[in-house]
């Protein structure tokens, strides 16, 4: 059964379906079959974290999951966060605090941060550092990413009240 099968799932709130061979990685499925190239691929062995997306609310390495395993799942990617004129507070904070340079790690950073702040809106610096440490960034030295997530957390809490 190496033959392709149809994978049906919900991506960023929209039902989507496309065929995939069982071996197709979720990262490739999102990028090639669904044209969601915002999810990046840097290592394909789980280390860099650029490919991190949310599956049923939890961050996962999309390079270490088969697309067929996402059958029926709810997947969220950077494209679902916000647009240039309607940014998610995390996107805004990354912009404000210079939390990105080349932007290649950014999808992974953002999705890890989304998972963190949605499950723990009052996350402090150490929790933020822990969450962010799963993704490599070769450009920023990380500090401004932590500051951005902190700022977003504060802002989101303010809005929540």
């Amino acid at each position: 059964m190496t033959t392709p099968r149809t994978v049906e799932l919900v991506v960023n709130g929209e039902p989507r379906a496309a065929d995939a061979e069982p071996r197709m990685l979720l990262s490739d499925f999102l990028r090639e079959k669904l044209a969601l190239t915002g999810t990046h691929v840097g290592c394909e062995h789980g280390v860099c974290g650029a490919c991190t997306v949310l599956v049923d609310g939890e961050s996962v390495r999309s390079c270490l999951m088969l697309a067929v395993q996402a059958q029926g799942a709810e997947v969220r990617t950077i494209e679902g966060l916000g647009s240039a004129d309607d940014m998610h507070p995390l996107q805004e904070a990354f912009w404000e605090k210079h939390g990105l340079q080349c932007g290649f790690c950014t999808p992974g950073m953002l999705m890890s941060a989304v998972e963190l702040l949605e499950s723990n809106p009052t996350a402090g610096r150490d929790e933020i550092r822990e969450a962010i440490s799963s993704t490599l960034c070769r450009c920023t030295g990380y500090q401004t990413i932590v500051e951005a997530v902190q700022a977003a957390a504060e802002k989101m809490q303010g809005e929540g009240q």
Partner: peptide, 15 residues
């Protein structure tokens, strides 16, 4: 540069 990069709309080599 950032708005496109923050929204997943950059165009990198593999895109």
């Amino acid at each position: 540069e950032d708005t496109r990069l923050l929204t997943g709309s950059g165009t990198y080599a593999d895109d």
